[in-house]
Each structure stands twice: as C-alpha cells, then as structure tokens.
Design a protein around this nucleic acid. Sequence first.
DNA 1: AACAAGACCTGCATGC
DNA 2: TGCATGCAGGTCTTGT
Length: 279
Amino acid sequence: MPELPEVETVRRGLMPALVGRRLADVAAHRPDLRFPLPDGFAARLRGRRVEDIGRRAKYLLLGLDGNLTLLVHLGMSGRFQVASGNGPLCLHDHVCFVTDDGWSVRFNDPRRFGYMDLIATDRLSGHPMLAGLGPEPLGEDFTGAYLGARLSGRGMALKASLMDQRTVAGMGNIYASESLYRARLSPLRASGSLGAAGVKRLVGAIRSVLVEAIEAGGSTLRNHQRPTGELGCFQHSFAVYDRAGEPCPDCRCDVARTGGIQRAVVAGRATFHCPKRQR
DNA sequence: AACAAGACCTGCATGC
DNA sequence: TGCATGCAGGTCTTGT
C-alpha cells in the first residue's frame, strides 16, 4: 500500500491519539507479521509512554520512554485504526494498543507484509532496515548534485533506480511513475543518461509530487486510510499511474493514433508513462 | 557489483 | 454461481 505520503499521513493521524499517552495495554494476536515479532514484544511495550512519532522512508518510528523505539513498516496492506473504547477484533487485527485514556489503536494487515521491531532509540540509526536508506526526498540532502552522482554510470532503468531505497528513501511504484512524468523523463531510459538539467527537473518533480500527495492525505487505491478512517485523495491527481490507454493530461495526444499512456514492466513492476512527453 | 527473479500472503477483479 | 487466473501500493533473499 503505502509509500512515503501515505506513511506520513498515517504518522500525522496517529500523533493526536498516541503522543503523550501511556500504552495501558498491548496485545499481539499472532507471533509474526512478515517476520517474527521480537521476544516479549507486548510486555516490553506495556506501560511505556509515547514521546513522539517520527518517520524515516516508509517506516514509522514510535519513540517511547526508557530508550525504546517501535519501528513499523506497513508493507502493502497494513493500516492503523484509531477508535474510542475497545470493540471486538476485526479480521487481520494483528496488534492492538490501548492507551491510558481509553483509546484503541489497531494494526490491521491482511497481506501481512508489514513488519514491527523494537530497538534501543540510541541505536536506531544502526537498525538493519534503516542503515542503508538513501536521503529523505523532502530533506536538504536530496539535491541534484547528490542524485546526479548516484545515477551516474548506471545502466539500470531510471525508474528502478528511483525505487531503490538506497537512492532515495520512500519512493514507491506510484510516485516514481508520477515523478518521472512530471519531470518529462522516460522510466525506461538508463539511469546514467540524464544530464544536469534532467536531474534537476527530477529532484524538483519528486519533491512537488510528494508534497502535493501529503497535502491530499496520500492516495487511496484499495485500502489506504488514515487512522481516523478518512481516505486519501491524491489518486484523483494521478497523471499516468494506472491510466494505460488514456490520453496524457498535458500533450493531449490522439489516443487512437498514439495509444495514449503506456503500461510497461520495469524491474517487475507495472510502470506507466507517456512516450511522447517522456524521453 | 549489478541486476533480475522469486519469495512472502491475502484479497479482489476478471474471464471462462 | 463457482472456479481458475492474474494482479496489487514493498522489500528481503537468492541466483545469474
């Protein structure tokens, strides 16, 4: 499911329910998500106070008192739901938190590609899932100079490089396609073939697409929703994603002649682009 | 080292 | 209606 804008939306939705609250109860209803939960998972969380909720790439980082961080990845289908009181479990409610003021926060993940781990906060940056990540696309380290150097000399398809979390942290299939469209760059071209102008356009496009998507509350395709149940609405702004055969919104090409937006497969993932506009 | 493909797991849309 | 098939927003692991 979630790429950076969806995870950021979830983070913002969890803050009012959790930050400053103590976890009166924590229950794991199965021993594993994608990987086994760490030993004593629920017991180690119980009674802790949530000090802040951060995000790195697509990971949520719940900072707890006593030097502990709960690291959460939503996988493809993970979501949190916040409710008052503690109602009956729904199918795939795998981990349940109850705060000291009586709210319940539940992690539901049908596909179970999600992931949770506990790590000492002062060793967070060394966590194996975080250690190799590239810069945050909305941070100041993500510059044209950085991206140009990173892509230089690589033959891999440009979109595959963008989805490599070591290149830039948090891009996924949707926003990689949308950013490349906005930068007028083909997802199929070699990563190292960009000039400085192309790299600069790409950095700007990635930033603007992500900022707009966050403002829209992310994209809801199947099951992304905010912890409050509201849906994201950036999917209505997609220029190319999942729009094969439709006209590209900018060049308005004659679909009967050009075929409109094309679907291709890059690094095993569906990829959408306008061959006329994106070179 | 770079890259592709397979694996993980469930739900849903599609077509027969 | 029921069944088989393919596909899905991610990423770790294995193999070339």
